[in-house]
Structure formats: structure tokens, C-alpha cells
């Protein structure tokens, strides 16, 4: 029911808190996937609100591909320390042993092994029956039809044809051993909502979102940051310093920067509103065709 007494952000916040509490109460062993990005930061704040003054009744899980920006890892560790969180970090060691990198195997194979497989390994190893994710329905077409409680089979697969109907605020949390639910408390948030909430709540985010001079190379028209000496430079490529920032964060070789002077939150929001490029286009994995995300999701990508 619409209550004009409450702002849209208050209502979105209350809805997310409700969802998070419901999961903590009904699942045996939930986990919150923590990707260190802005959406994860908002989701974490909402979880802290849900259980205040208590602590989070579930751990965070970070799937570390070993190719995250160094600033992301530093931010992650600082956040965990300050909030007193229980953090699990999982890396696909098989992938590391096999020498899988974004350069040797291409973005699609790499993502599949170091992100999708790694996530499945961690979920299976810990026996998590629910996993929070920060995905939003406005991000991408196939996500618009995603449930808040999204059922996954024992092999972590999503079947878009066979989703449970979801009514009112009554979420069906029933799963058999091995099956699980992915939970998306930010389903109804848009990118603008996320930024406004960060602004309003003064939520800390990784500095990479703000403009600064950073060493970058231009590849296929996109700025790739040289975050460490593992980035193989192609003939003729020399890193140059540019004022850039990131609209989305992931593995540094696969996440393009945009040129920008936006160094404060209002400037970022302003830039976003006049942006003519939608959010995920900074992620190189979505470009193949417009149904590619749906395919990835069926296979278990978040």
C-alpha cells in the first residue's frame, strides 16, 4: 500500500530489511554475497539496520578471483574490521592451479571458472541454503522478471520458466537439502535509488568510484586500469595517467573506466543522470548478445 507519508527510499529500505530478516529467520544457513561494490555496500548497511543492535546472524562471502582491484580488497578488509563482520573468502584454487586468467582464456571462460564455478564451490562447500545478492531488476532485461526469492536447483541452476509465484510480502523459503534460494533485497531499487541512499546515509564506498588520476591503457575504445604488473601490455601500449573513475567494479582487466572529473557523490549522481551509457556496458562480459545475461544466470552466475 502506498503511503505518501514515507518517501520512496524509506519504503525501499523497509522492504529490504523485511526481506533480510525473513531470510535470517527461515533459513538454516544463509550467507550474504559481498562483492565490495556500491550495491553490496548498500545491502550490507540494510542488513546492519535489520539486526541492530544485534550483529549480523550470517557471514559474508566474497568470491575472490585474485584479479580484483587492490583498493577493493583494502576496502573490504577495513569494512570487515570496522563492522566486526564474519567474512569468508573463496577462490577457485583449481582455476588458479590451471593458470586461468582473463588473458589466457578469454573473459567468458575466465568468468565461468573464476566467478560462477567458484561461487558454486563455496555455496556447496559451506552448505548454504540461502545467498543474498545485490542484483537489481533495473540492471538488465532478464533480471526484470527475477523473483526476490529465486529458487536454484542442486546444481545451482535457474529455470526462468519454472519460478515460484511471489505474492504480497510472503516469501516461500522451502528448499530440499542441496537446493537453495538466491535472495535479492535490492530488487526494486534503481541505480539512482542506490546513489541517493549512499548520499543520504553517508555509506562508505570504494574510492575507485570517485575520479582520480590513474594509470590506464586504451583497449578497443575502453580505458583499462593498470592496477598491478600482471596486466600484459601489448606492443606499443604505455600506461598513461588520466582522470578516470569506475561506474561499476569487478576484475580490473575486465572493468573499463570512464573519463570523468566527478570527485564527490553529488557529482557522481549528476554524471549518472546525464549519462548516455547504461551501467553494465562497463562490464565487458555482457557484450556478446543481449540474451547473454539470461544464459549466464541459468548456469548459476549471479
Amino acid at each position: 500500500m502506498s503511503q505518501d507519508r514515507l518517501t520512496h527510499l524509506k519504503r525501499l529500505e523497509a522492504e529490504a530489511i523485511h526481506i533480510i530478516r525473513e531470510v535470517a529467520a527461515e533459513f538454516r544457513n544463509p550467507v550474504m554475497l559481498y562483492s565490495i561494490g556500491k550495491d553490496s555496500s548498500v545491502m550490507l548497511r540494510l542488513a546492519l539496520k535489520a539486526f541492530y543492535p544485534g550483529k549480523l546472524p550470517f557471514p559474508l562471502l566474497h568470491v575472490d578471483t585474485t584479479w580484483k582491484f587492490r583498493e577493493m580488497i583494502a576496502f573490504r578488509d577495513a569494512t570487515v574490521r570496522e563492522e566486526g563482520l564474519d567474512l569468508l573468502v573463496h577462490t577457485n584454487q583449481d582455476g588458479v592451479a590451471a593458470g586461468i586468467t582473463p588473458f589466457t582464456h578469454g573473459s567468458s571462460v575466465y568468468t565461468n571458472i573464476m566467478k560462477t564455478d567458484a561461487l558454486k564451490q563455496a555455496l556447496t562447500a559451506h552448505g548454504f541454503d540461502a545467498a543474498f545478492g545485490g542484483a537489481r531488476r533495473d540492471e538488465e532485461k532478464s533480471r526484470a522478471k527475477e523473483r526476490v526469492f529465486s529458487f536454484r536447483t542442486e546444481s545451482h541452476a535457474w529455470d526462468p520458466k519454472n519460478q515460484r509465484p511471489e505474492l504480497w510480502h510472503l516469501y516461500n523459503s522451502r528448499v530440499r537439502p542441496g537446493e537453495s534460494i538466491r535472495v535479492f533485497p535490492l530488487s526494486n531499487w534503481t541505480e539512482l535509488d542506490i546513489w541517493q541512499y549512499i548520499l543520504l546515509e553517508k555509506i562508505p564506498i570504494v574510492p575507485l568510484y570517485f575520479s582520480a588520476e590513474r594509470p590506464v591503457v586504451n583497449r578497443g575504445g575502453q580505458w583499462i586500469m593498470v592496477d598491478d604488473d600482471r596486466l600484459p601490455l601489448q606492443p606499443g601500449e604505455t600506461p598513461e595517467l588520466r582522470r578516470v573513475r569506475f561506474r561499476t567494479l569487478g576484475c580490473y582487466p575486465l572493468t573499463a573506466a570512464v573519463e570523468s572529473d566527478a570527485a564527490t557523490l553529488p557529482e557522481i549522481v549528476r554524471e549518472m543522470l546525464i549519462a548516455r551509457t547504461s551501467e553494465r556496458s562497463g562490464r565487458l562480459i555482457d557484450h556478446d548478445d543481449s540474451a547473454s545475461m539470461e544464459k549466464k544466470k541459468r548456469e548459476g552466475y549471479f
Binding site: S2, Q3, D4, L6, T7, H8, L9, R11, L12, L192, Q196, L199, L200, P266, V269
Partner: peptide, 9 residues
């Protein structure tokens, strides 16, 4: 931004 923070739903 202030106006948009006060929107309803």
C-alpha cells in the same frame, strides 16, 4: 536531489 529524495512511491 533534495526533491528526488522526497518522492513517494
Amino acid at each position: 536531489l533534495g526533491r528526488h529524495e522526497k518522492k513517494s512511491l
